[in-house]
């Protein structure tokens, strides 16, 4: 199985501060990969480097088989990105947002129309299509953002805290949609703070102060550390690391 994402010693420094510190990992094609870590661990920074929004300080990486330094243009054609911050046009309607991004990806008129229909069917967006995106309730905004980022059928989808701030019912449904995408072969690279969501992932990595401190299958990790669930595991790992760094 070819790899969708490979990272080798990827590092990003902002001045003296190292936000991402030599992280290495690979994500297989079709995999649902959970990219976990506490606030400020460096998750967003790492994703931004993979999406070509930020130039790494050092290290290597490929996305969809394309080099992150040299093949930015090809990477952009094969990825979708749903950012942590709501970043659609609040003064355009849901439909206009979808139409705009579809046009930027140069989808043919007919194709674009069909996809918008299809996606709003799947995500239950129909009745919201003519409302301004800025006036949508949070959960619907996130569905719209998801729809926008998959309009062009990307092979790899980066989702940066896609379910931040929405209720559990919404989250459950949202993950149902993500699983549908994964079933169709899309690779998902997801960050989240919700450990119940992390359990849906095939594999997870846990980041702390810019480093990856653990990586593996959720149930394997739970067994390895003999914890009742991921939540406990996460808390224990992070506090242990924090103590270690406090000792130094």
């Amino acid at each position: 199985m070819p790899d969708a994402v490979t990272i080798e010693k990827l590092t990003k420094k902002f001045g003296d501060f190292t936000a991402v510190d030599q992280i290495s990992l690979t994500v297989g094609e079709g995999e649902v990969f959970g990219f976990l870590g506490a606030n400020g661990a460096g998750k967003t920074t790492a994703i931004r480097m993979l999406c070509g929004l930020l130039l790494p300080t050092s290290g290597n990486g490929t996305v969809g088989g394309f080099d992150i330094y040299r093949d930015n243009e090809n990477i952009k054609k094969s990825i979708g990105y749903m950012s942590q911050k709501f970043s659609l046009y609040g003064d355009l309607t849901a439909y206009e947002n979808l139409w705009f991004y579809g046009s930027v990806y140069q989808l043919k008129k007919k194709v674009l129309k069909d996809r918008i229909d299809e996606l709003s069917e799947e995500l239950g967006l129909h009745e919201f299509l003519n409302r301004l995106a800025g006036n949508l309730p949070l959960g619907w905004r996130q569905r719209l953002a998801l729809a926008t980022s998959v309009l062009h059928r990307p092979k790899i989808l980066f989702l940066d805290e896609p379910t931040g701030g929405v209720d559990p019912v919404f989250r459950r449904r949202f993950w149902g949609m993500l699983y549908d995408l994964a079933d169709k072969g899309t690779t998902l690279f997801v960050t989240t703070h919700y450990m119940d969501e992390a359990e849906y992932c095939h594999r997870i990595s846990i980041m702390h102060h810019g480093r990856i401190i653990e990586l593996g299958n959720p149930s394997d990790l739970i067994q390895k550390y003999q914890q009742p669930n991921l939540e406990e595991l996460f808390v224990q790992l992070i506090s242990k690391k924090s103590e270690e760094s406090a000792d130094v």
Binding site: K76, Y81, S87, Q106
Partner: peptide
């Protein structure tokens, strides 16, 4: 400011 430029920059524009 509102982050849409970033969203545009990940497209092949």
């Amino acid at each position: 400011e509102i982050g849409t430029l970033e969203q545009l920059m990940v497209t092949p524009i």
